[in-house]
Design a binder for these strands. Sequence first.
DNA 1: GCACCGTCATGCACTTAGTGCAAGATGCTT
DNA 2: AAGCATCTTGCACTAAGTGCATGACGGTGC
Lengths: 196, 196
Amino acid sequence: MAPNPSPIRLQTRAVVRSLLAQTAMQLFAEKGFDETTVDEVAAAAGVSRRTLFNYFRTKEDLALSGLSEQGEVIAIRLADRPGDEDVWVSLRYAFEVLDEIEASPENRLEIVSMLFDNDSLRAGHAEKQARWTDLLAPLIEPRLPASESRGFEAKAIVGAAITCLQAATEEWLRVRGSTPLFDLYDTAVAAIQKSN
Amino acid sequence: MAPNPSPIRLQTRAVVRSLLAQTAMQLFAEKGFDETTVDEVAAAAGVSRRTLFNYFRTKEDLALSGLSEQGEVIAIRLADRPGDEDVWVSLRYAFEVLDEIEASPENRLEIVSMLFDNDSLRAGHAEKQARWTDLLAPLIEPRLPASESRGFEAKAIVGAAITCLQAATEEWLRVRGSTPLFDLYDTAVAAIQKSN
DNA sequence: GCACCGTCATGCACTTAGTGCAAGATGCTT
DNA sequence: AAGCATCTTGCACTAAGTGCATGACGGTGC
């Protein structure tokens, strides 16, 4: 099949992919996701429609590909945390990389708005973030006390943390960014851990 | 617009809708979601394709409409719980209605499998369940200690509980139902609340 | 019975997302 | 220069979803 996809090929491919996604996001931000056709994106990027689908499986992917990469960056950060640190603390530090990655603060609100405006986009967004679980859970599993269900518990914890991040993002959007995202995140985490 | 959608009209409409969804699920279970076209569903149900889209916005909705209803049932159950009960306990009881609602145990595995097989279906499933938050959070909000962010905290808690349910479902699917769903749910909730 | 009314079902034409295929361009390797 | 794999593109096709206009159905008032 692909024993040697060649080192340089992969790199150019990644660059092109990134450029295409950028062009797409530009248009999506200008006209909205639903109002922008794939043909328009292809034209704006100067490639054929067919080629575009060679780089992205779906139109949705054009808007959400960044999330997968973010997941990988978070995983790298998480792996750097000391092994004896509380997992919730580690996760919070790892997530905070989002504050550094994401585009300028003004654009951020705009982008998040777009992601929440469209049904399937919002669903895809949630799904992609949920898939971060698969990347992060293996990293915190070894930190949990031994148990037959440790792997599953790790997934639950990571899933809950991501949910807090999502809830925080939703609230952050609601208040139009007037409260820092990670303040909201902390509130959410505190709420679910309160023994009540 | 619709000052009087008429009482009887709404009821027949709901019945037809339910019948259509049933027919669709039948086919989806037989041939798989992707391999079944909307035209086939329409034909099997004895209506035109156009009519089908009159009852369901998308093909996805045909498979996921049940989830919205489940959310409403859960909300009703939750409203019945005593007001001074621990919110996590209340939520668990409310969720347990799923064990009563859902189809025969054999079919359940099959249906859940189908929902997790397809990307957009899995995403839609997660989204619909996440929307349960909007129904359930207002019910538990008054039980939380007063605070400016109580509404948001309620959403975080409900969101986390739903995430535990989703994680449990995923694990339940992985082990092919060999462990009861709510045993897994309890493990997940315990994991995220452990102070570590 | 008959004309009037809103609602619903349907057919038709159309746009858009996404796929399979085959031909041609590109660029590296020997 | 020839050979090779990969990338791009056009073309034809399937399927989801929408807008519109027409006609069927069912009840109301006369």
